[in-house]
Simulated assay, not measured.
Amino acid sequence: MITLKDVKKVFSSKSGLVTAVDGINLEINKGEIFGVIGYSGAGKSTLIRMFNQLEKPTEGSIMVAGRDMAKISGRELRVARQETGMIFQHFNLLWSRTVRDNIAFPLEISGVRKAEQRKRVDELIELVGLKGRELAYPSELSGGQKQRVGIARALANNPKVLLCDEATSALDPQTTDSILDLLVDINERLGLTIILITHEMHVIRKICHRVAVMENGRVVEQGDVLSVFKNPKEEITRRFVGQLTEPEDTQETAEHLLEKFPNGKVIQLTFVGEETEQPLITNVIRNFDITVNILQGKISHLQTGSYGTLFVHVDGPDTEINKVIDYIRSQAVDVEVISNG
Rank of each mutant, 00 (worst) to 15 (best):
H256T: 06
V219E: 02
V272E: 14
F229Y: 09
V228S: 01
E221Q: 14
R210T: 10
G264N: 02
P262E: 10
F240Q: 12
N216R: 11
V219P: 07
F271H: 12
N231E: 08
G273M: 07
Q278C: 04
E215H: 09
E275L: 06
R210A: 08
E275G: 03
N283C: 00
N287V: 01
G223D: 08
Q296D: 12
T253V: 08
E235P: 00
R205D: 11
D224R: 10
F288G: 06
V272Y: 12
G217R: 10
T250Y: 03
V211A: 00
S227R: 09
L269K: 04
K233D: 03
N283A: 03
R238Y: 06
L280G: 08
T282G: 09
P232W: 05
N287E: 10
E252H: 08
E255S: 13
P232V: 04
V228D: 00
I267D: 00
S227M: 06
A212G: 05
L269R: 04
F288W: 08
K230N: 08
I281M: 04
F240H: 14
T276G: 03
N231D: 08
F229R: 05
V225L: 08
T276W: 01
E277L: 06
G264P: 05
E248W: 11
F261N: 10
L257K: 04
G217I: 13
G217H: 11
P279L: 09
L257F: 10
E274G: 04
K260P: 07
V266Q: 00
T237E: 10
I204M: 09
R218M: 15
K265F: 06
N216I: 13
D224P: 00
F288L: 05
N287M: 02
L244W: 04
D224E: 12
E277T: 05
Q278F: 06
G223Y: 08
T253D: 13
T276D: 01
L244G: 14
I285N: 05
R218T: 15
E235Q: 09
T270G: 14
R210N: 09
V211C: 01
R238G: 09
V292W: 03
K265P: 03
V284Y: 01
G273Q: 11
F261K: 12
K206M: 07
I207S: 15
Q251S: 10
L280P: 03
K206N: 11
R205K: 12
N231I: 06
I204N: 10
L295G: 03
E246D: 13
E275D: 05
N231Q: 07
D289R: 11
A212R: 00
N231F: 02
P247F: 11
E259C: 08
I281D: 01
L280I: 15
T282L: 07
I285S: 07
V266L: 02
E259D: 09
I204P: 15
Q296H: 09
R218Q: 15
R239P: 15
